[in-house]
Simulated assay, not measured.
Amino acid sequence: MGKFILTDVFVEVNGVNFSDHVSSVEVSVSHDEVDVTSFSGGGRERLAGLRDDSFTLNFQQDFAVGEVDATLWPLFSNKTEFTVKVRGTSAAISTSNPEYSATCILLEYQALSGSPGDLSETSVTFPAQRSGIARATV
């Protein structure tokens, strides 16, 4: 299997393509760990519980109309659910370029961060609602 270098990641939040404003991406999927250890076992036993998935995106902040802050602030303020989509490249969805998507909610938003002379960036975590992140190949 070939190696994969991230150079052309596709990122969409609430229908807005932010591929040109995102400098890092993380798609995290997990299950809660439920301890079901009983007295009859010789050690711990676990089952997979509820899903707890999320996207973490590092945005290069932009306050222009239709850009980062103008999109994220209303989602946070209005407690609105929205869709996040991420692909390894901007090419079409395929078996070699799956799309990860979920209905998300924005619970925390750091609108401005940095020191003198720094690029204004904000790291945002988008928790997936209900069924978690889906993976599509077509």
Rank of each mutant, 00 (worst) to 15 (best):
D20S: 14
V16K: 01
N14G: 03
G43E: 05
G42M: 07
D52E: 10
D35C: 15
N17K: 04
V25C: 05
V13F: 04
H21E: 02
S54I: 03
V13N: 12
T37I: 12
S28L: 12
R44G: 13
S38K: 08
R44L: 14
N58M: 13
R46A: 13
V22K: 00
S24M: 02
S24C: 04
S23W: 03
A48E: 12
F18C: 09
S24E: 03
S40T: 15
V25M: 11
G43R: 06
S30P: 01
S24K: 05
S19Y: 00
V27P: 07
S54A: 10
H21C: 13
Q61K: 11
V34C: 15
E26G: 10
T56R: 07
S38W: 10
D35S: 11
G41F: 06
N58Q: 13
F18R: 01
T56Y: 03
L50C: 13
D20V: 11
L50G: 11
L57V: 14
S54H: 04
Q61N: 12
V34R: 09
S23C: 12
G49R: 00
V9K: 02
F10M: 11
D52P: 01
N14H: 02
S28I: 04
T56S: 11
V34Y: 13
V27W: 02
E26A: 10
T37A: 09
S19W: 00
N17C: 01
S40G: 11
V36Q: 11
N58S: 14
S30E: 04
S38M: 11
L47M: 12
A48K: 13
H31G: 08
D53H: 10
V29L: 13
E33R: 14
H31D: 10
G15E: 01
H21D: 06
D53T: 09
D53P: 02
S19P: 02
V13G: 07
F18Q: 00
S38P: 09
D52T: 14
L47P: 07
L47S: 11
N58F: 03
L57P: 05
N58A: 10
S23D: 08
V13C: 07
D53G: 08
S38G: 15
V27F: 07
V13Y: 05
A48N: 12
S40Y: 11
S19H: 00
V11W: 03
G49A: 05
E33I: 14
S40V: 14
E26Y: 02
